[in-house]
Design a protein around this nucleic acid. Structure first.
Lengths: 149, 149
DNA sequence: CACTTGAGGTTCCCTCAAGGAACCCTGACT
DNA sequence: AGTCAGGGTTCCTTGAGGGAACCTCAAGTG
């Protein structure tokens, strides 16, 4: 697929895409996050080619997003999110928010999320980690960082 | 690319991927967001094939994420973010946050962001739009929504 | 013991998308 | 009329995704 190597670019967006930018990868993480952790479960739920599923899982394991671990004395394995992978779920939640708002149509969102802390059906909002105020497209200025090219 | 049609799935993640899941699309949005709005600018900055760039721009325009508009009496066009597209930048900011944290390495992040409201270099944090408390992977329960399959 | 079963892949072929270079079209400028 | 630049389009080659068939290992069954 991606013949251009995004991982070498001096851009955190490109680097993130190098890890989860291939087709199916975010959907695999979504499924793993809700407990579909085995090869057969993922293949059945997604309808993905077994070959591609193998490639994606290996890639995600190689990048430390998933951990492959045995769950039986037989050669059976499940894939679980690492801490690195768990934090990627934030990205999925933002995708859900945008998709719900702009793509759900008249039928409404296919899934709702109840927030444990308040018990309400809600969605994510982006805030500044420093001051807690909203932080969106026009609210920041980019500056060259230490890892700039 | 994506031969499987994610747009038809009853999942906001899959639907979002149908819009911006193809290779290069998030990087195009990143560039447009920082003012690289013309075909030649995008092609030069990204190093993307002209053919693929054409396809991506048409796709993003067709989905209402970008607007193509003339900026000269000659047939010259620029691509600008719609409101729908501007809200997608949230997704990019979360990708930046994750990439900075997990992929930047010893060199540190290539770009820093100063938040207008507080003036500090900061990053985004996900909060519940209802109660304002943190909202991450384990903080929600999914429920079937009105648009469920 | 041989036989079956199921998870977790691997191999094969086919099609179509990405990369890349060359080419084209249009309107302004000289 | 000739040139130039922006914004594409066309063509070919390579390689990734889809899909079906096949393989392997260990446990369970008779």
């Amino acid at each position: 697929m991606q013949r251009t190597d995004f991982g070498q670019m001096a851009c955190s967006i490109a680097r993130t895409l190098d890890v989860i930018g291939e087709p199916w990868s975010p959907l695999i993480l979504r499924d793993v996050n809700v407990g579909l952790t085995r090869f057969e479960q993922l293949q059945a739920d997604l309808g993905i080619s077994r070959k591609v599923l193998t490639e994606r899982l290996n890639h995600l394991v190689a990048h430390g997003v998933l951990e492959r671990r045995p769950y039986d004395r037989r050669p059976r394995f499940e894939y679980v999110l690492t801490e690195k992978g768990t934090e990627l779920v934030d990205l999925l939640m933002v995708m859900v928010g945008w998709g719900d708002r702009w793509l759900a149509g008249a039928a409404g969102p296919p899934v709702l999320y109840r927030h444990h802390a308040c018990g309400q059906v809600s969605h994510v909002e982006l805030r500044c980690a420093h001051c807690g105020q909203p932080m969106h497209a026009g609210d920041v200025d980019p500056l060259p960082g230490p890892g700039a090219a």
